[in-house]
Design a protein around this nucleic acid. Sequence first.
DNA 1: TTAAAAAACTGATCCTGGTCAATTACTGCC
DNA 2: GGCAGTAATTGACCAGGATCAGTTTTTTAA
Lengths: 231, 231
Amino acid sequence: MNSNQQFSGCTISSYDCRCFDLLSPEERKLIDDNSVQISYKKGEMICKQGGFVSQIMYVEQGLAKVFIENGGNSLLLRITPDGSFIGLSALSDEFATFPYSAKVYINSVIRQVDVTAFRSVLNSNSRFATEIINILSANSVQIYGRFYCLTFKQAYGRLADIILCLSERIFKQDKFDLPLSRKDIAELSGMSSETVVRMLKKFNEDGLIRMNGKSMEVADVEKLHRISETG
Amino acid sequence: MNSNQQFSGCTISSYDCRCFDLLSPEERKLIDDNSVQISYKKGEMICKQGGFVSQIMYVEQGLAKVFIENGGNSLLLRITPDGSFIGLSALSDEFATFPYSAKVYINSVIRQVDVTAFRSVLNSNSRFATEIINILSANSVQIYGRFYCLTFKQAYGRLADIILCLSERIFKQDKFDLPLSRKDIAELSGMSSETVVRMLKKFNEDGLIRMNGKSMEVADVEKLHRISETG
DNA sequence: TTAAAAAACTGATCCTGGTCAATTACTGCC
DNA sequence: GGCAGTAATTGACCAGGATCAGTTTTTTAA
C-alpha cells in the first residue's frame, strides 16, 4: 500500500456541515438574533490576522481563502467554499485574536455569529457540539495531510495535488475558471510563483492540463494522480 | 511587528487539560468503567497508522510522539507530554482509522477510553464538550504555526525552534537529556538527519548550545530566539 | 481611452540542504 | 567481553527550486 494516497494535500476538508439543522427552533432564533449576513465583494478581507475575534464566521455562499501573513510572503491554509466556518478557534477562550487572515475570492455572503450566542448553543445542544467537534477533527486530519505533502512531496507532486483538489473538490468539474492567481497557487503549494508558472507550463505542454489564461481544464486525471502520489 | 514570533513551530499546544475534572461522579464512573490504564515501555507503539480506532487515548504519565509514516521517512506531528489526548480525531465518525502512528519515548502510562463511552459523556456534558473543543482549537492553531515554520523558515530557524520548544515547553529547564534521536529531530523539523547533525554541531561551536551525546543545554536563549525569528 | 499598476512569464544564476557512501561510536545482548 | 545492529558523524557531490532582473500581458482606475 502506498500511503501517499491518503495524504492529498487538499485544502478543504470533505466534511459536509449540517450543524445548523441540529438546532431547536429556539436555538435557531438565538443564532439568528445574534448574527448578521454580510456581502463581500471579490477581493475584500473578511478578517485580519491579529485582530480581535468577536464573531464566528460562516460562508453562506462564495469562496474564500484563509491564510497566514508575514511581510511579503504568506501561506494559504485553507480554501473555504460555502458551508465552512472561519474562526472556530475563537471558541477557545485562549485565542482572543485571529491566528490568520481571510479574504474572499468572489462575491460572497458571510454570516457573522456572535461568539457568546454560539457558545451558549454549544452548551445547550450537545449534538451541535458534537458536530462542531467533528468539523474540528476533520480539519485536523486534513491539515495533517497537507503538512505531509508540503514536507515530503516534490514541487510537481504538490502542484498536481492542488490542481486535483480544485477540480475534484472545490469546483467539482474538469474545466473551471481559476479565481486564484499564480501567487495564490504558489502560497498553497509552498513554492515561488515563478516555479508555479514554469511547472504549469510543463503540465500544459505534456498534455496533463489545458490552460488558457484563467481557464483551466484537467486533461489527464490519471497521470496527475500518479504525479501526486509519486511526489 | 514581526509576526514570525507568533509562529514558533513548537510541537505541543500549551493547552492545559482540565477536562476530566468537569465530569459528574456518574460520568466519571462511566469513563472509569470503560477505560483501562496500560503501561508502555520505552519505544513501544501505542497506535498504528491505518489501524482501526476503538479508543481515545490519554497520556496519564510519560512522553510520546505522534507521527505520519511513509515507507522510510516519517513526519513527526506532535510531542505529547502527560495530560494530552491522542486519537481525538476518532470522535468524528468519518475517521474509523488512525491517520497517524504513536510511540512512547519513555516508560509511560496511557489510559484507553472507549469511544462510545467518551461520546456519551460528550453528549451529556456540554462543559466537557466545550473543553474538548478548546483542545481541538488549540491543536489547530498550534499546527498552523508549525505549518508556517516548516514552509517559510530555513533549516537553522526550524532547528532553533525545536530546541527552544524542548527546553521551554517540554522539559521546562535549560539542561536536559534528549530522549529524541537525531532522526526524530530531523522528522520534527522536516530535514535530513545529516543536516541536523551538521547544524547542531554548528550551534555547539557557536556557543548557542552545549551538547554532549544525549545531554543538551541551552547556552544562549536570546540568540536562539533570534535565529528562530529570522528564519 | 489611456495611463498606471499588478500579474504573468522567461531566462540566468546561485545556494540551501538532500543524497550517497564510508567511518566511527553506542547499546543491547548472549 | 565481544559481536551484531543501530545511531551518529563526516565529507563529497549535486539538484531542486529560490531569487533576481527584465519583459510582456492583463487588469484597474481615472
